[in-house]
Design a protein around this nucleic acid. Structure first.
Lengths: 269, 269
DNA sequence: TAGTGGTCTAGACCACCTC
DNA sequence: AGGTGGTCTAGACCACTAA
């Protein structure tokens, strides 16, 4: 479904929609309907990233609502980062994670480079495995469901400082592994190049003792402190789309976040 | 332009407040002026926490603006968590950090208890010191400025799992240390009991090796991995108000956060 | 000049809550 | 019944950007 006409669903004809009269069932507010319709068009690719949205006047006609209602819908889309507006020019579909932009997540490579280091990644392996209990739980899948696993090491001036595995749909993993992970962060590739949309990201940060393969990869003796970062990316339906587990050396990797008092973000101990 | 009425502060008198005729200087939008005026009243305690705001109609008269403008102002205050509204009753000043509420920060004790553990804190020390370089930098003060330091240990079933020091204004530290830190989290006390308002919180999470006093307090051998969490609380002017440094045992303490795609929150590696 | 978003108003109907 | 917030409309002026 795309656009014109009524709001409720795919109805194409004008049909003032309106009228509360009798039907409308579980009537959501009109601005919410417009908001969801536009968001659906964006997520479905009908409105391509970077492209201009219909003008507010057009949206008014298209959905048969007043400008204030359209603006309320756009305001929420803007707050969620899916859309941005430029005075005098129009509203635009935000680039999914502009490179170096102000998305919520900044990849480790980008962060290192911003501080003046040379950093690069390397694809270590790429496979389809049966999800173990941990991955299945994180991705909300039945155990032993096939999932793609992409393991990447990150280097700072040729010293390895982080190694991690990202689990996601096999088809997405395939495309991820085909990208340039030498120069780009995994999160960046997923969002900017592959168009993945993430509504929320759950992060858990732990301290662990180095051991086994991870210790060797990071050139650490067993027992040395490492940072372990687990992230789960959730789509707009609340379903987990990606899960990653990353280990990093504490000298070079720390986790930073700024919590704004608005819109939650929950911290636990 | 027609309307009159003062926007600037809580002034009750009319005082037309410019019609933009010629000078308007750094004229902010009216809704922003209303928003800031109401926020100032809340932060200043003119509107007490938990109390009811003037109704939208009252605010319209008070500031001489239309209801839509008032609602736009309230919407932003609501988004920032300072205010919440109840259909049919009115708008209310949010309790600063409702106990167990949905504030951005959840203290460690609360988090442990939520998972079914018995947890308590203990005030270890409380003093006024000259800020060292690190604390001065974090609080944006000249070095050697006197600051209050409150050190607290947290126990889970009588096993110590976290110890940390909070630096803040001496007068606030005095009041903080006088509160019940046995049962309440420091962050909870600061916000709920002492009325501290925090616009943003910067958090840094690191993995470190246990050593010295911290290792002893947490009953860890030197070199064991510990989580180190640094937080800086920023007020609505962007000035740091609190700085804390906490060490925790990885078996019992981890850091969790949910990043929403809206409203930023920046992660770095 | 024409189109766009940014802001604002007056007025309206509804659902909800309290009295 | 009366007050409150939730939603919506039609119309207006402005600042900005573009052709």
């Amino acid at each position: 479904m795309t656009s014109s006409g009524a709001i409720m669903t795919g109805v194409k004809e004008a049909m003032p929609l309106e009228g509360e009269a009798t039907t409308t069932e579980a009537t959501q507010p009109r601005f919410a309907q417009v908001r969801d319709a536009v968001r659906a068009d964006i997520l479905a690719g009908v409105l391509p990233a970077g492209g201009r949205l219909p003008s507010e006047a057009q949206l008014c006609r298209q959905y048969g609502v007043s400008r204030i209602t359209v603006r309320q819908a756009l305001a929420e889309l803007q707050a969620s980062g899916l859309v941005h507006t430029v005075n005098g020019r129009g509203s635009f579909v935000s680039q999914p994670r502009a490179p170096g932009g102000q998305g919520p997540l900044v990849g480790v490579l980008e962060a290192m480079r911003k501080r003046g280091w040379k950093a690069h990644g390397r694809l270590l392996s790429h496979s389809v495995q049966k999800a173990d209990a941990e991955v299945a739980l994180a991705l909300n899948l039945p155990p032993r469901t096939p999932v793609g696993a992409v393991t990447v090491a990150r280097y700072c001036d040729d010293v390895p400082f982080a190694v991690g595995t990202t689990y996601l749909a096999p088809e997405l993993a395939e495309r991820l592994a085909a990208q340039d992970l030498e120069h780009n962060d995994v999160t960046d590739v997923l969002h900017r190049l592959l168009g993945l949309r993430t509504a929320r990201t759950r992060v858990t940060v732990q301290a662990v003792a180095a051991q086994g393969m991870v210790a060797r990869r990071l050139r650490k003796p067993a027992g040395a402190p490492l940072l372990r970062v687990l992230t789960t990316g959730l789509d707009y339906e609340g379903q987990p789309a990606t899960y990653s587990e990353t280990y990093g050396t504490p000298e070079l990797l720390e986790y930073r976040v700024t919590l704004h008092n608005d819109t939650s973000s929950a911290r636990e101990g």
